[in-house]
């Protein structure tokens, strides 16, 4: 019977963690939609997540676009379909690469920062101090970050779409010798609204995941510097895994809707 004891422990611990996350998410969402709203703080986080992530996201997108153009040329040249490169770049950037890579980069940049900041506030009793000052930590710390993540990621991904396609254009025109006008015309003719919209929906979900994981792990961190370090790691790892998981789930939903 001792075999079942450790298994039971793991199962209960897992269920407890899932339940705690569900309660946390519910509380955070309920506070995000009820007044009072801290507009200045929401604005500050929007600036941090949206504007200051632009260089990182831009670099990621341009190289991703360039690589896709080169790699698909290698593949498509084998059956004389080089003309489809513009389409492949546009499709893979808008549907997949821009949202996923942006989500992962932002989870490293923002998710880690959120977990470290809220975690430090937790272990130095600043979160408790908020409570004593009649300010709900969910409303003041969690909700503004969730709102900023949910709204800023789609904008970031839209920018990444444009820069990624530009990267493909640069390689296509200057390295592979495509006609610039043809390349742009191909991109424009081929791309559909759903390609871009599905990527932007993914981006919103990823933004929510990144900020939620940062807040959750920061909020429940304990035990000083080591605990905060652990919370930061957990925030980035769990956000990255959830991004890839939800990327598959959402792609499946859009695939079913498409066919």
């Amino acid at each position: 019977m001792n075999v079942f004891q450790p298994i039971g422990h793991v199962v209960f611990a897992f269920l407890a963690a899932v339940g705690r996350l569900a309660v946390f998410t519910g509380l955070a969402l309920s506070h995000a939609v009820r007044p009072p709203f801290y507009f200045r703080i929401i604005g500050r986080h929007m600036l941090e997540i949206g504007y200051f992530s632009l260089p990182v996201v831009g670099m990621t997108a341009i190289f991703a676009g360039m690589v896709i153009a080169l790699q698909s040329f290698t593949g498509f040249a084998r059956f004389n379909a080089e003309g489809a490169i513009a389409n492949v770049v546009a499709l893979s950037i808008t549907r997949e690469l821009a949202p996923v890579l942006t989500g992962l980069m932002v989870s490293g940049r923002i998710g880690a920062a959120i977990a470290a900041e809220i975690g430090t506030m937790r272990v130095t009793e600043q979160v408790d101090a908020l409570t004593t000052l009649s300010t709900n930590p969910f409303k003041y710390l969690v909700a503004p970050r969730l709102i900023a993540g949910l709204t800023m990621l789609p904008i970031l991904v839209f920018v990444a779409d444009i820069i990624g396609i530009l990267g493909g254009y640069i390689v296509g025109v200057y390295q592979l010798g495509f006609n610039p006008a043809n390349y742009l015309q191909n991109t424009y003719d081929f791309i559909e609204t759903l390609d871009v919209v599905s990527g932007l929906v993914k981006a919103g979900v990823f933004g929510f995941i990144v900020t939620l994981m940062g807040c959750y792990h920061g909020y429940y961190s304990k035990g000083g510097a080591q605990g905060v370090g652990q919370a930061t790691t957990n925030a980035v790892v769990s956000a990255s895994i959830l991004i890839l998981l939800f990327n598959y789930i959402l792609t499946g939903i859009f695939f079913a809707a498409d066919v």
């Binding site: 130095t124 600043q126 101090a129 004593t132």
Partner: peptide, 13 residues
């Protein structure tokens, strides 16, 4: 209620 925390718990931002 007003509270003084052990480590002061001032908001460092």
């Amino acid at each position: 209620i007003g509270m003084l925390f052990q480590g002061a718990a001032l908001f460092d931002s």
